[in-house]
Structures are given as C-alpha cells and as structure tokens.
Design a protein around this nucleic acid. Structure first.
Length: 219
DNA sequence: ATCGTCAACATGCGGT
DNA sequence: ACCGCATGTTGACGAT
C-alpha cells in the first residue's frame, strides 16, 4: 500500500490522529475521530516520511502559519499555503515544462521538501488555471471578431440597400446599351421599333415610340 | 459576512 | 490494470 492509498483510506492517518476523508458517496466529511490504530511497520515508516516532509515544508512560513497548519493537521484537512520560495520554484519549473515525468516530479519534490503528490497536484491545478486564463483570452478575442463582423455586415447591408434604391431610379448603363441593341429603325416611318426581346426589355423601352404594325412590307 | 484564491480531492477518460 | 491528465468540486484561508 502506497502513501497515496494511506492518505485516501481515511484510516491510515498520522498516528493517534484521524484524517477525515470525504464520504465517497455523499461528498461529506466523516466525523473527526481520535483513533490510535496499530499500524504495520511499513505504514508507520511511510507516515513518518510524510510527516517529516510536511513538517519541513513549513520551515519557511512564519510561526502563525505553522501553528495554523499544525492545527489543521490535528483537526483534519491539511491546508497548506506554499511558501514564496516554493511557489517561485514551481512557477519556474512550469515555465520550462508544463508537465513532469516521474523523475522530474520526484526531484522537484525533494528540492521543495514536498511530497511528489503535492507537486503533481500543483501542476494539475496550474495547468487548469492556465487553460482557464487562455479560455478567457480566446473568448475576448472571438467576441471582438464577432462584433467587428457584425459591424461589417451591417455596413454591407446598408450599402446594398443604397445600391438597390439607385438601381430602381436608373438602370445601369450596360443594361441601357443592351436595350439599344435590340432596337431597329423602321424604314417606312423612320421610327425606332422593337425588334424583339423579353418583358424586362419592354419596360425599359416604354419611352420609345410603340410602333403599330402597318401593312407595309418593312414592318 | 462575503468573495476570490488555491491546495486537495473525486471522477471519468484515453493511452499504454 | 494502471497511469496521467482534464475537469469539476470542496473547504481553508486571506482580503475587503
């Protein structure tokens, strides 16, 4: 049984103390008990090592913090604040590698006087914080993109409406040319007559003299 | 009293 | 089966 498991059982505990564990089903803390359980020598060795490393991790904090942490340990949940030196070293390591392999984790834990599990947890939480910050940054970026695209969309719609209103007032020049090409001159009356075309063309040439077909050969 | 931060933990998932 | 990681939650703690 590793010290991780020892921690997670809620019974392994420091000698003579009970570390409350969250109730597996209900996410509640079980009652704080003061038990003294005879432990296997190996377990005691593990716990001794753990207590030593935790005790030494408090060396750089002030007396109040040390006392508080001690009280927490006795009462149950161990809540330690990392010292400034520990945080700095962890941050520096994180800048180099955002993840650690087992040996790196072990080495860093030894340098920091922390348990490898604590280093592992710190890196997991640090990655989560990094991702959260990045998500916020991404969100702001995408929001700005969305806003500028909406502005552009509004501008283009407005421009399109303006162009449509202009088209109604006066057809484009190329369309007028196209209509002109469909007109011919009647040789008999010398009026411009329509030589064919579609309905749209009819509307376009309505200002042109409508030629009543006469019974002349040319028309 | 309330809120934000963060260490510690639980859980689920994918890779091996 | 085991491990590492992502993600969500809890609870201690400090700041206001």
């Amino acid at each position: 049984m590793g010290d991780e498991e020892l921690c997670n059982t809620g019974l392994a505990l420091s000698i003579g103390q009970f570390v409350p564990r969250r109730d597996q089903q209900k996410n509640k803390h079980v009652v704080c008990l003061d038990l003294t359980i005879p432990l296997h020598p190996k377990q005691e060795a593990n716990i001794d090592a753990e207590c030593r490393s935790e005790g030494s991790s408090l060396k750089t904090v002030d007396e109040d913090e040390a006392q508080t942490s001690k009280n927490n340990k006795i009462c149950g949940r161990k809540k330690l604040r990392l010292s400034k030196e520990q945080s700095t070293l962890l941050e520096d390591s994180f800048k180099i590698h955002s993840t650690l392999n087992t040996s790196q984790k072990q080495a860093l834990a030894e340098r920091l006087n922390l348990r490898p599990r604590q280093v592992e947890v710190w890196f997991q939480n640090r990655r989560a914080r990094t991702k959260l910050k990045q998500t916020v940054v991404d969100y702001e970026f995408l929001k700005n993109c969305c806003e500028s695209l909406s502005d552009e969309n509004r501008r283009l719609k407005k421009e399109l409406d303006e162009l449509r209103s202009l088209k109604v007032e006066q057809p484009p020049f190329y369309i007028q040319l196209q209509k002109a090409a469909t007109l011919t001159m009647c040789p008999s009356c010398e009026n411009v007559v329509k030589a064919g075309g579609d309905g749209a063309s009819d509307a376009a040439v309505k200002n042109v003299v409508q030629h009543e077909p006469k019974k002349t050969p040319s028309c």
